[in-house]
Design a protein around this nucleic acid. Structure first.
Lengths: 169, 169
DNA sequence: CCAACCATGTAAGCTGTTACATGATTGA
DNA sequence: TCAATCATGTAACAGCTTACATGGTTGG
């Protein structure tokens, strides 16, 4: 399962959609970073279908293919992916977007884990910068690594702000 | 030319290295995000060699392959890549690390461009969030986009801080 | 002498990119 | 009627990942 597959599965679970409608999501929103063109989306939908995670139903009319629906197996696969430990923050962010809208505790737990992961990664870079390996590098290389640390700190800060947002509702 | 190719070329320009030494750079520094294993690095070195951007010389002894040196064509290719407009910030960061150590004006110009690109991308996300498309999305999706904006703002902030660092030297 | 590391590769498989191709429908 | 958009694909190609394979050398 690639990130694109997960993105498609999550969108389809939110509500059934045609391949074209899914294509448009990637073309018109920042989700576009997960794909680019029909050449990746249609084959990915095929693979989801072949894996039994989605099925196609409700052809609107003679020409259209119909709407992709998520199957029970698809739900299970998505659930498993959603509950895996956070390693990659970008992937985690995709999972965040697919979290159930109303489950406050789950959202807060996820944000806690996200913040912890971002902090841990930031600490990892800080440790690297303090190590022998870093002192041998050029000044610019170290500052480039600093950039990574800044971004991770920003990610952790975002998680804290988001938690505040979801605590008073 | 893939990011990995550029990373290799930049490292080799800094000073000649063996394939194994390059491998170790990716294994032991945050540059690892550009690669992972011999399975990508050795073929990439081959392609650089075939393209005439590097050549192999100075075999240390009978068994070793020797050291990769950058060629005139390699220098030219790197130069062209370095002076292209900034589109992708991660790629730009790699370029930053390869900027000549002593050329203050070039560094400052680059950081100006980097900051402008980060600000522009952040504005793009802000515009999206203010658009009709965003109002139709779920709250969590909007907050996920916010994360992207936070990170871009952090990137711009990093560039400003780096400029201060390079102005008093 | 044996494990760890130096040093270099190959091969299968999967994914994504780019570009091309097709045909129906809708609005001006 | 003609362009744009809806809607769905195919095919070539390049690249990365994973896993496997091969030998030499060094330190304990």
């Amino acid at each position: 399962m690639t990130p694109l597959n997960h993105a498609l599965l999550g969108l389809i679970r939110a509500h059934p959609r045609s391949g074209y409608a899914l294509l448009k999501v990637f073309e018109t929103t920042p989700m576009g970073s997960y794909s680019s063109s029909p050449g990746s989306i249609y084959p990915a939908l095929r693979s989801l279908e072949k894996a039994g995670l989605v099925d196609v139903r409700d052809p609107r009319d003679a020409r259209g293919k119909g709407l992709y629906h998520i199957t029970a197996a698809g739900r299970a696969a998505l659930e498993q992916w959603m509950s895996a430990p956070i390693v990659d923050l970008d992937e985690a962010l995709l999972r965040f977007a697919f979290l159930p809208e109303d489950d406050g505790p789950a959202i807060r737990a996820f944000l806690d884990a996200f913040e912890a992961a971002a902090d841990a990664q930031a600490s990892g870079l800080a440790a690297f910068l303090a190590s022998d390996a870093a002192t041998g590098m050029t000044a610019k290389s170290r500052i480039a690594v600093e950039h990574g640390r800044c971004r991770l700190t920003a990610s952790a800060g975002w998680a804290r702000a988001a938690k505040r947002h979801f605590s008073d509702e």
